[in-house]
Nucleic acid binder design. Structure first.
Lengths: 240, 240
DNA sequence: CGCCTGTTTGAGGGACGTCAAGTCCCGTGG
DNA sequence: CCACGGGACTTGACGTCCCTCAAACAGGCG
């Protein structure tokens, strides 16, 4: 999952249709904390997320980390390049994954239909990543966090049934490394949004969106974060 | 082109082999300043760069811009998503491009070999973009500019014949919007590299790499930019 | 209950952005 | 040929957003 301009988000990757019939596909359940693969491993299969959340990361030698994406239901992870994975992939919450063996994609026994769908998935991936460039390169901390919450709400709404609640299965430092910030800045920004009445933080992994429009506005850089007065609570002269 | 960790760079996309034989492919020359397509245009063809340099950009409503990538010889641009381009594409220096009509890729008359090669190209693109995430999210201005120069040197070395010279056909603000900086910061950083003796700036579009190893070190965050003394000019107590 | 890890909050500093004033380059025209 | 003008680039002064460092706090687990 990449943070995009929420309204422009393309539909989730549909289930790879034809592949379901293949003997090469298996559905498996992975526990939280499991590793699916490491950067550099030879690619033998791709995974489509059916439930749960994955995390894709890259490391620099000096320890700096970038979370490349989160894998939500519908997403495909494990795209190979030159036969190797180029991120680490870990399971954040117990996940049901459909595995596609690479042999089903290559060589003479390759399934052309599956091949075509994989290309579509890769092209969607490229588009989503381009959106994410804009965010990493050009957005402020508030815009980044607001965008993140907006997209999380959309992506997980099917699970929770509610568009007003975001479930954050990942740690603050995962969020930070995804958005190109520090944990402290992520934490501070969330507090700021809470104090201004735009969100409420139920518990560390659950954020309630009190003012979706304001949040969306912030994600686009269209409004400044400000006093609670902006949300109708005039007269409250609390610290902004 | 994405700025990657230079040493890990994957080989350029090889020419789409089978496609050359197709009647659907044409080589065309485009002048600097030409536009190839806009974001949102219907995709009718992809382009492989044979010579020259392209620029792929995205815009936010408020005018903020992100240069998504530069298209150098070997690169393929115009990957569709849901049938549309999702960047603008402009020609920076006169370019010879091979156009692949999308009809050659889709439907019943689709060429399966070409299809397969396109998937490989898309997967390479994804890998390169993931590298670029790391840079946008986690690197300092010096690291970004140094990385950019390193990759430029590699990508263009076949043209210039020299690995010690980088040709920068794009403007400073293109570089800034690619790296997630401002023109001023790009300019200052280049000056800083020049003053420390790591590069020389022949003219606005030509940078000579005097100390490739130092530059590479900076791109990796392994060394601090410092006095010229570091490069052997001990005793020079000039401003660092 | 105490430890441990993750999170929040605070104070302070630094890197980069903003704003503004040069400087350079190049094309145009006298 | 030089003067002029305009746009891109460079440089400087200053501000600010976010990072760094540090301490307090909170929740989970023995």
């Amino acid at each position: 999952m990449y943070v995009t301009i929420p309204s422009e988000q393309t539909p989730f990757a549909p289930q790879l249709r034809c592949a379901r019939k293949q003997a090469t596909t298996v559905t498996k359940v992975f526990k939280a904390g499991n590793n699916l693969y490491f950067e550099g491993d030879k690619v033998d299969r791709l995974y489509q997320v059916q439930s749960g959340v994955l995390r894709l990361t890259r490391l620099l030698e000096d320890g700096r980390r970038q979370v490349i994406a989160f894998g939500f239901p519908g997403d495909i992870v494990g795209f190979p390049c030159d036969g190797r994975y180029h991120t680490d992939c870990d399971v954040l919450t117990e996940a049901r994954l459909q595995a596609y063996h690479l042999s089903a994609l290559e060589g003479e026994n390759g399934n052309p239909e599956l091949h075509k769908e994989l290309l579509q998935a890769a092209l969607r991936e490229i588009s989503a990543m381009q959106d994410h460039f804009m965010m990493l390169g050009r957005k402020s901390a508030v815009e980044k966090v607001a965008s993140f919450l907006c997209v999380l709400t959309e992506r997980m709404s099917s699970d929770t049934g509610s568009r007003n609640q975001a479930f954050l299965p990942m740690s603050r430092s995962d969020i930070a490394d995804f958005l190109g910030l520090t944990t402290e800045t992520v934490s501070r920004t969330l507090s700021q949004l809470r104090k201004s009445g735009i969100i409420a933080i139920n518990n560390i992994h659950t954020v309630v969106i009190l003012q979706p429009n304001a949040l969306f506005g912030l994600s686009q850089g269209r409004e400044d974060i400000d006093c609670p007065s902006k949300s109708g609570l005039h007269g409250l002269a609390r610290a902004c």
